[in-house]
Every structure is written in structure tokens, then in C-alpha cells.
Design a protein around this nucleic acid. Structure first.
Lengths: 208, 208
DNA sequence: GTCTATAGGCTGATAGAC
DNA sequence: GTCTATCAGCCTATAGAC
């Protein structure tokens, strides 16, 4: 009985490992060659298995992409949670903004998958979360939370409301990341300068 | 001699017309079904010709996409030029910002093609313009021009420089459009409110 | 569980008849 | 100029041997 359990455990550990290896390979392909290069054959080649074998671990190609996105949201939420300790909401908001951009630039193709590729995939992943706090909602909360705190403390510019302001900040940060990913050379301003400029304008424009 | 010229003209006019019809069809397909649905066969079906016929008018599929982008930049630059009459640079800048977002939302798939799809295609199209003012450069000029004027008039917040500020505005506007196109339902704030909020923050944050 | 083989689909692009 | 036929290639996913 005990021996059987150990064997079962080992088998399931091996399963998990190959699953993880598939995801690792997929991440590498998406990172290096973009989402459209993510094919079962390419993954199979990378992990030295046949394409058919992958179907034992993932229902289909979309399930692999969804897993990558999932991990991405998880990681983004985690990097936001590292900012939670900052007491001042304005400083915390700025840190979250910097973490957001850093995440996008550090994981360009995961970011692409999460926010720039397929609206339906993004939507279905976010909608799946309605029954309690998934990582997507947690991430969004980290953005709107500090703005709401500022609003409650009367520290927003007169007439400003938390939600539109948080959404405007998110849009602006997304624009910076997205533009860097799609037209790397285009906004001529270096990334750091651009981010500093944007955050400074944001603080001056909305917080008092 | 005269008759020959007329026939030649008529033929070339017919050529232009079919070329335009191909582009119209391509635009419709990209608009309705996205860039990946833009195939020679789908275009052929739409214009009731064979796929092979299209190669008489465009070298290949990329040339068709490039033509669509070209028209997009042309149209964007034109919509910016309609703002040129506004004397006050701050008001002109705001008008340009609104025109930019309107363009993106009115031509979602052309916008996608221009700024969200293929970095190399975007880059090659913009680089082709280096020998004098193409529509891309004209469009960028409409954005940075008013900011430079504000800088020259001492109307920027202390420490602000024209280029980073213009790039930050562009990034923010791009983010708004891009997010609306990819996750239509996501920033919960209505588009108009979001744009108003963003422009108000921008003005307060950078202009004095 | 993993393989090979294959069904059944799509793609861009070209050759050659008319 | 336009067609049909076709090449050569890619894809997802499955069947069935082992």
C-alpha cells in the first residue's frame, strides 16, 4: 500500500515536471519568436517529444497559452504585493506603476499574450475570476486601491474620481509598455525618462 | 496617337480602380476579422477574382498590408492638419490628442496594423520616410510641435522638456486606444470620460 | 505514455492554358 | 489579365501500434 502510494506520487511528480517543461519551452518560444510561432510541433521539438505527446498534458494549444497567461497574472500580482508595505498611498501607487512597467519589459511576450494579443482569451481568463479574487483582480486592486485611498483622504485634485484616474494611469502605463514592445525604437525618449516623466505628470495632474 | 493615349489612360484608370477595390476588400477583412484573416484567398473571394489575379496588382500579401498602413498614416496626418488652425498650442495639443484617439477608435484594424501588429512592418514603413516628411513624420510633428511651442513660451512646468512630454502623451493616448481595442470591456471607465480625465491630468501635470 | 502516420485543413505563391 | 491546377509548406488534432 505504502509502496503503491509512493509510486503514484512519483508518477504524478514526473507528470508535473513534464507539464512544467512544456510551459518552459512554450515560454521560450513565445519570448523568442512571438505567439504565432507557438505551435505544438515547435514545442515538441524543444522538449524532444512528439507533438502528440503534448496532448497528454494539455487539452490543446489554447490551454497552453492560457497557462502562460495565468502564470503571468500570478507573477504580476506577486510583484504588486511587494509594494503593499509602502504606507503612503501616493508612493505606493508610484511603486506599483514602476512594477507594472518593469513586468511588461521583463516579460515582453507574456505581456503581449496577456494584454495585446487575443481579446477573447484575455476576457475569458479575466471573467473566469468572477468567483472571488483571482490574480487578475488582485493586480487591478493594487492599482485602484491606492487611488481610492487618496480619494478618501481628500488628496485628489478637485473633481477627480478614483476609478477614471486609476484607469487613466493603467492606460498610460500600458501604452508605454505596448509601444516599447511594438516599436522599440520609436518613442525616442529612453524608457526610464519616459516613465519618470509620465509618473511625475500623473502625480502633479491628479494628486495634491 | 491621341486615341492610343486615351486607351492607355482608360486602361490605367481601370487598373487603379481594381487596385483600390483590392484595398477596400482588404480593409473590410482586417476590420471585421483581424489581420490574420487577411489572406489572398479571402480577398479574392471578396472581390470575385481568383487569388492569382491579385498578384498582378500587388507583389505579395505584405505589400497589401503596407498599403493599408500607408493610407492610415495619410489619414491620420490629414486629421491632424485639421487642428493646425488652432492658435493656442495647448488647445491645439488637446485637439490633436482627441483626433488621435478618434482615429484609433474609428479605424480599429488599421490602427492595429499601424501600431500593434508587426514591429518590423511598422519600422520599415517609418524608416522609408527618412528622405523628407512622410505622413508618419508629419503626424508625429503635429504632436511634438505644440509641446515645443509651449516649451518655447515657458508654459511647461519647471523641469519639463518637450520631447519626453510629447512621447509620454503619445504613449498614454496609445495605451487608451490599444486597451480599448484589445480588452473592449476592460477599463470600466467609458472612453469619453477616460479621455477627458487623461487630457485634464496631462494639462495640469505638464502645462502651467 | 509515447510513438508514427495521417486526416483534413489552411497558407503564399507560381506555371501554364486561354 | 485572368483563370485553374498545383507545389510546397505549414498547422491542429486524432488513430492505432507498441
Amino acid at each position: 500500500m505504502l509502496a503503491t502510494m509512493k509510486a503514484t506520487e512519483r508518477r504524478s511528480r514526473q507528470r508535473e515536471e513534464l507539464r512544467a517543461e512544456i510551459l518552459r519551452a512554450a515560454r521560450g518560444i513565445v519570448l523568442g519568436e512571438g505567439y504565432r510561432a507557438l505551435t505544438m510541433r515547435r514545442i515538441a521539438e524543444a522538449i524532444d517529444y512528439s507533438a502528440a505527446a503534448i496532448y497528454q498534458y494539455f487539452e490543446n494549444r489554447d490551454a497552453i497559452a492560457a497557462s502562460l497567461m495565468d502564470q503571468g497574472f500570478e507573477e504580476l500580482a506577486a510583484s504588486f504585493e511587494a509594494c503593499a508595505a509602502i504606507a503612503d498611498p501616493a508612493a505606493r501607487l508610484e511603486a506599483v506603476g514602476r512594477a507594472y512597467v518593469a513586468f511588461g519589459l521583463d516579460h515582453p511576450e507574456t505581456y503581449r499574450l496577456m494584454f495585446m494579443e487575443d481579446p477573447e482569451m484575455t476576457a475569458s481568463l479575466l471573467e473566469r475570476e468572477t468567483g472571488r479574487q483571482g490574480p487578475g483582480e488582485r493586480a487591478y486592486g493594487a492599482l485602484i486601491g491606492p487611488v481610492a485611498e487618496l480619494a478618501a483622504a481628500g488628496r485628489l485634485q478637485p473633481g477627480g474620481e478614483a476609478q477614471p484616474i486609476a484607469d487613466a494611469l493603467w492606460s498610460a502605463l500600458h501604452g508605454m509598455v505596448a509601444l516599447k514592445l511594438t516599436c522599440p525604437q520609436f518613442p525616442a525618449t529612453p524608457t526610464d525618462t519616459l516613465l519618470d516623466t509620465m509618473l511625475r505628470g500623473f502625480v502633479r495632474g491628479f494628486i495634491r
